[in-house]
Amino acid sequence: MSDATEVATIPITVDFSGGLEMLFDNQRRHSVALPAAQTSGKPANIAFLIDYLCKNLMKDPRSDLFVLDGHIRPGILVLINDADWELEGEEAYEIQPRDNILFVSTLHGG
């Protein structure tokens, strides 16, 4: 019975770097079982993942350090399997099993 309600998930790893790990329990790598479909039924994409992380993984209430106006805030690079997300379709990229998604905040110090 419970099987019928169980949500299909995609296993992925999510990494944070450049100080963003501070918002996620100071842990740089998280294994995430991401729901395979959004509530609308569309396959899970990066935009959905970002929203999911804010609601489920972020321990720190300062979500504006990660998301601004519903999008990833300026100064954060998103890398899909070590490639800039612009090479992969940005927010619309559909997440595949075992993907590695890295969020890295750009640094300016020296």
Partner: peptide, 20 residues
């Protein structure tokens, strides 16, 4: 091309120069 926009200053480590 790589870093289109700077981060908002408020996102830099709060209250003080971050160590290095």
């Amino acid at each position: 091309c790589c870093f289109r926009k700077p981060p908002p200053p408020s996102s830099m480590v709060s209250c003080g120069e971050a160590g290095i």
